[in-house]
Design a protein around this nucleic acid. Structure first.
Length: 590
RNA sequence: CGGGCUGUGGCGCAGCUUGGUUAGCGUGCUUGUCUGGGGGACAAGAGGUCGUGGGUUCAAAUCCCGCCAGCCCGACCA
């Protein structure tokens, strides 16, 4: 197939669009792959659509290869199933809702668990029909508060979502493993580097869950990976080990001190180090010796607001994202000065654990960070202005209503698996696999009869790949200052032929001939046959568009050769015109 | 949703402070001539409700208010 630049619907931009920051967005717009059509919505131009289709094809092939079957749902869905599972409410403002002329509610599907569950319920009722794996490639809608970075976070995006249906947990594990393996193959073929990390399942529900993250500075997810072992996890999902208990039998009793003007951890530590009666003999006090008690409000999906106190070591901040993942579906909102004013038992800046907890004077639920050991000793607020207590022992002097992973995770923190150091990195989520379990099957009543004729609730898994996002991620992974450089498997064309001679000379004929030969070999060829365009422009455009191979039919044609370039390696070789088609077809493209 | 910055032909920008002819520049686009291996030269053109609605004024791209949109930071989220 020959794509002629003279007629292709394409306009490359000389300058970077000012509203595009991340490389994939900038280059995909500049090279004429996409155009913004709406906030968070993009139009695919011919080149972009070719790449999108190729990404889609690879994903489809790998899904088909494991025996998943493709179906297709409407994007506009009825309210009822989502009402039944609670997601009509849980999804909150992120759900696009609309009404028909009679005022009946609909939504634009953010993901399709409910619909797949109901479809299987509709048609199947025996264990003999399982396992069953279904998938679709569908436009999804989420009313993102802030769409950004072009295709990386849109409000409308293309996603491949699959669902597995099994009779029991063993079956689910096999389905999960098969999908996970298919994802590894898919991302390998797409030329995307990735980390598989443990993740939280969030609003999806369910238990085990892993994310496929493409490591990238413009990514929005933070994850840790161990420098020694294979442990990797989304920071939200990092679970630190239970600390060893400390024997506090011989510890002195806690003492309350006047500590005027110490509303922050830093001022408190300074005061303790500067006063001879408070100074430690063995070392200086540091922030990690203090217990910081942070209060937030939880807003439950039903609108109820409940305060929650969290105790973390003073050298750490509460990671709200991490905390929120553990209180889902409730969301965290600020505990304001007004809230402080209402609760007389709290002294802002001097809150201590003695006045926290469901059974305490404040009646506020109090959770401690998991890193805090029973028997550990703390300096913390004394619930009076300008006063702190030292030597307060967890388990002896105060208790809590539960533990939580709330403290921020840092570079160099110990690995929960091997104890070595963790490294913090950023990434783009390109895939996510969940073991859903029975949540959806239960609420929607998807059951089958087992071999004993007994009713069993089906166990489900759900597996997603962001297709349009993958295009952006591939662009992030494959570009340089000149433009895009696509992996062969997803490039909009296999080769780009630049006619670089004067009008009327033999270079045009040579380019046309080579294009014909390559096309006959089933290759897709972009042929720059534009009239009156200078060679410099053609070179720039070829590099910007970024096919893996570029052929220049220019001054060499007079002596029977063309120049064949490898866009990835940056190498070039002169090849006899007669052998060029063969050479191009066989050349490596990395 | 909070904070900051921005919105002027397809793209990149100037003009706004201090209101006043016909809103300007580069690039892209059209036509012609030349040029022909790194976004080439010269010339002549086309293309603009100055984001949008209201207000102040004899007069608004310019000043004031609302709204919309974009980018960045935070919050949120795939």
């Amino acid at each position: 197939m020959i794509l002629r630049m003279s007629t292709m619907f394409l306009r490359t931009l000389r300058d970077d669009p000012v509203d595009a920051e991340v490389p994939s967005h900038r280059l995909l717009v500049r090279a004429g792959y996409i155009r913004r059509a709406a906030p968070g919505g993009y139009t695919w131009l011919p080149l972009g659509l070719r790449t999108l289709n190729r990404v889609e094809t690879i994903i489809r092939q790998e899904m088909d290869a494991i025996g998943a079957q493709e179906v297709h749902f409407p994007a506009m869905l009825p309210r009822e199933p989502y009402e039944t599972t609670g997601r009509w409410t849980d999804y909150g403002p992120n759900l696009f809702r609309l009404q028909d002329r009679r005022g009946v509610d609909y939504l634009l599907g953010p993901t399709h668990e409910e619909m797949f569950t109901l479809l299987v319920k509709d048609l199947y009722s025996s264990y003999k029909d399982l396992p069953l794996w279904l998938y679709q490639i569908q436009t999804k809608f989420r009313d993102e508060a802030r769409p950004r970075a072009g295709l990386l976070r849109g409000r409308e995006f293309l996603m491949k979502d699959s669902y597995s249906f099994d009779i029991d947990q063993d079956g689910l594990q096999r389905s999960y493993d098969a999908h996970r393996a298919a994802y590894l193959r898919t991302f390998d073929r797409l030329g995307l580097p990735y980390h598989v990390v443990s993740a939280m399942s969030g609003a999806m529900g369910g238990s085990a869950s892993e994310e496929f993250l493409f490591p990238c500075e413009s990514g929005e997810d933070t994850f840790v990976s161990c420098t020694k072992c294979d442990y990797a996890a989304n920071t939200e999902a990092v679970r630190v080990g239970e600390p060893a208990k400390i024997d506090s039998a011989g510890f002195a009793a806690a003492v309350v001190h006047d500590t005027p003007a110490t509303p922050t951890i830093a001022t408190l530590v300074d005061l303790f180090n500067s006063r001879s009666d408070l100074k430690r003999s063995d070392r200086a006090w540091h922030a990690g010796d203090t217990l910081k008690n942070v209060i937030v409000n939880l807003r439950h999906p039903d609108g109820r607001i409940e305060p929650l106190a969290v105790g973390v070591p003073g050298d750490r901040d509460v990671d709200l994202k991490r905390l929120e993942a553990q209180v889902a579906p409730a969301e965290i909102i600020d505990f304001t000065d007004e809230d402080f004013a209402k609760n007389k038992n709290l002294v802002k800046g001097y809150i201590g654990p003695q006045s926290l907890g469901e059974k305490s004077s404040s009646a506020i639920r109090f959770l401690l960070d998991r890193s805090i050991a029973i028997g550990s000793t703390w300096i913390t607020g004394a619930n009076a202005p300008g006063r702190h207590v030292a030597g307060l022992v967890y388990g002896r002097d105060f208790s809590c209503d539960g533990v939580v992973d709330a403290a921020d995770v840092r570079d160099g923190d110990p690995c929960p698996k091997c104890g070595s150091h963790l490294l913090i990195r950023r990434g783009i989520e390109i895939g996510h696999v969940f073991q859903l379990g029975r949540k959806y099957a239960e609420s929607l009543g998807l059951t089958v009869l087992d071999q004993n004729g007994k009713t069993q609730t089906v166990t489900m898994g759900s597996y997603g790949i962001g297709v349009s996002r993958a295009v952006a991620a591939i662009a992030e992974a494959n570009h340089d200052e000149l433009g895009l450089k696509w992996p062969s498997a997803v490039s909009p064309a296999d080769v780009h032929i630049v006619i670089a001679g004067k009008p009327g000379d033999e270079t045009a004929g040579a380019g046309e001939k080579l294009a014909g030969e390559l096309s006959a070999k089933q290759m897709t060829v972009i042929l720059d046959d534009r009239k009156g365009v200078s060679p410099g422009v053609r070179f720039k455009d070829a590099e910007l568009i970024g096919t893996p191979r570029i052929v220049i039919a220019g001054r060499g044609v007079a002596t029977g050769v063309v120049e064949v370039r490898n866009r990835h390696a940056g190498t070039a070789s002169e090849v006899a015109l007669a052998e060029a088609a063969e050479f191009v077809a066989k050349m490596p493209t990395t």
